[in-house]
Design a protein around this nucleic acid. Structure first.
Lengths: 254, 254
DNA sequence: GAGTGGTCTAGACCACTGA
DNA sequence: CAGTGGTCTAGACCACTCG
């Protein structure tokens, strides 16, 4: 049993059993909190290294290491001579970070997004579990067709938690141009940080076959994505069917 | 027109148009060369930071930055208190770095590798192009079946350039235990650094269906992998068919 | 030219490993 | 305990951007 010191001033400090955390990781956590709290918004410039060093009372090198870690995780973007920016899904450079489908040959034709459906409903058990909700909680479901150069290639079913995406409607989607994640961050303050995907081969059912213009039973690439925002919180479930006759899913192993 | 100095000693030094290369990147290149040349072999300990700093006449911090970059690329592994090791595909921790197939539920059953075929032949045009060879050059072709818990799940066709893999035979493969890339690095001095994969959905043909125990026409995940060694040199082409009825290909987007 | 991030150094101290 | 990598600091200088 631990001894209790009579005088609080003499209390034995808690031994650092496994509680060692480097300064730069603490700074990293503080910066992340400011990002999450909206102190600096996507696309904006954050304070310079020297300013942050003064603010946190640490050396510039420590701030630098924290920022470098966040840049590695694609939360920040550093630009020499200019400053450090909050990453945004609206930027042209980051736009295809999450879309891994590429034409087998040549340039990608113009990308077109068509929303087939948008409805609010109650979460089924599997959807709720993945989104860390309770069965029956409100969710928004979207169905979307992605076309390259006029040809439909991807059919996505998307589920979003009802709460942060309260005002999401078909009009809102139709008005918006550009990547969905850009809309999510600008209109709903939800920033997608990372995602896990599970890929399988599947046979097209009648519905998917009609929308994608393939034969019933044709092989399709099935992609289930769970996307996370800050703090490993899941905020989007996506089930996609890809027509891979003229496109492929590219991946780099390292 | 540039002026030519009469005295060579007075020659104007070439302006650093775009030729700036940080010291730590030069050190990184030197370390890479030693790795490539076999000065330190996979699994071995490389010299300490202070030793390398003395050897290259730079500060420890510069060496550290070079090593950190190489560790990020999975060429080196740092272990506090012990030292820095050359990464190896034989290590249990790195063994599944390139195999992204995971069972949908539960633990992966025992992995079993069975080689169906191993032959030397002349490269077809497409294989030659991908491996940076000439059509008709010698290649080794392997056909391999991967089973989890006794059930066949992956059928791989593998092409290797004839040159570095001269002594590769069916016996050699049968004798070896563990990942193929472990054999490649220990027996042939070829270390796989990274790989590009292209994923598609395909229908099983008679051959594949029989080997994988699925129906003809069943959807399979098709994975074409091109693996590279040092200097972005392609050294393996792999065409795999995955049965994804009880397994999936996992990927993380970030 | 002023301000930004990028590189390089030198030195101190900390955490971890193994003899 | 000595040796390793890991953290933190302070300061100098370089490369890039923009007004």
């Amino acid at each position: 049993m631990p001894t209790i010191a009579a005088d609080p001033a003499e209390a034995v400090p808690a031994p650092p059993v496994a509680a060692f955390s480097p300064l730069y990781q603490q700074i990293k956590a503080l910066i992340t909190r400011s990002l999450q709290g909206g102190e600096w918004r996507p696309g904006e410039l954050i304070p310079s290294e020297v300013e942050l060093a003064a603010r946190f009372r640490v050396s510039q090198g420590t701030v630098r290491k924290a920022i470098e870690a966040l840049a590695d995780e694609n939360l920040l973007v550093r630009r020499q001579g200019k400053g450090t920016y909050v990453a945004s899904h609206a930027e042209p450079t980051t736009r295809f970070r999450f879309l891994r489908l590429t034409p087998d040959a040549g340039e990608a034709g113009a990308l077109e997004r068509r929303f087939v459906d948008c409805r609010r409903q109650r979460a089924a058990a599997d959807v709720a579990r993945l989104l860390a909700l309770k069965t029956g909680d409100a969710v928004v479901q979207l169905r979307r067709l992605l076309s390259f150069g006029g040809k439909p290639v991807v059919l996505d079913d998307i589920w979003l938690p009802g709460q942060p995406f309260k005002g999401l409607t078909a009009e809102r989607l139709a008005d918006h141009d550009g990547p969905l994640y850009g809309l999510f961050e600008s209109a709903f303050g939800v920033r997608m940080i990372r995602a896990d995907e599970k890929l399988r081969a599947a046979a097209a059912d009648a519905d998917s076959a009609a929308l994608l213009g393939v034969a019933v039973g044709a092989p399709l690439l099935s992609v289930e994505r769970l996307a996370y925002t800050y703090g490993e919180q899941p905020v989007e479930l996506r089930r996609g069917l890809y027509d891979t006759r003229a496109h492929h899913y590219r991946n780099e192993l390292s």
